[in-house]
């Protein structure tokens, strides 16, 4: 029976069964330690970078694919917009936005609730209205401010 087990697997099984306990530390060379350290730092650094890049700072409201307005996400306000079948109300609070009410029959975009991430989108198709969040990684992402 044991002849039928492939070599590699047999080795694994033998070691799993405890055939010898080497010091795990001796299996790592200096370069391995260095690489693990660098990789660990890079992985740790990727956490805040990605989460910060994902936050939104603007809400873009479109009707029939045309931008109607851009709302900054730092002041709470409401915005009303008349679309194909009625009035859509968009509510903005610091850092987030939602479709408060919409005349659409199925209310998908209302039930989506608060949008918080860049590129998140709520589509009120019957009224031809979309609400999309945009982050700094979007347009002019390379600039903090522009002066003329």
């Amino acid at each position: 029976m044991s002849d039928r087990i492939p070599d590699g697997l047999r080795e694994l099984l033998a070691h799993a069964a405890g055939a010898g306990h080497a010091q795990w530390r001796t299996l790592l060379k200096s370069g391995d330690w260095l690489l693990l350290l660098v990789a660990g730092v890079l992985v740790a650094a990727s956490y805040p970078l990605l989460w910060r890049g994902g936050t939104a700072d603007r809400a873009i409201v479109k009707r029939d694919g045309q931008v109607v307005t851009e709302l900054a996400l730092n002041v709470a306000r409401k915005y009303e917009l008349t679309g194909a079948i009625g009035t859509t109300v968009i509510e903005v609070q610091p850092g987030r936005a939602r479709v408060l009410s919409d005349p659409g029959p199925r209310q998908y975009c209302v039930q989506q609730g608060w949008l918080t991430r860049a590129n998140a989108v709520a589509i009120c198709a019957p009224n031809h209205v979309t609400l999309q969040l945009s982050g700094r990684s979007g347009q002019n992402g390379a600039y903090d401010t522009l002066n003329y």
Partner: peptide, 9 residues
């Protein structure tokens, strides 16, 4: 300086 651990990572 580099063993299988580096290759694996």
């Amino acid at each position: 300086f580099f063993g299988p651990v580096s290759a694996s990572v």
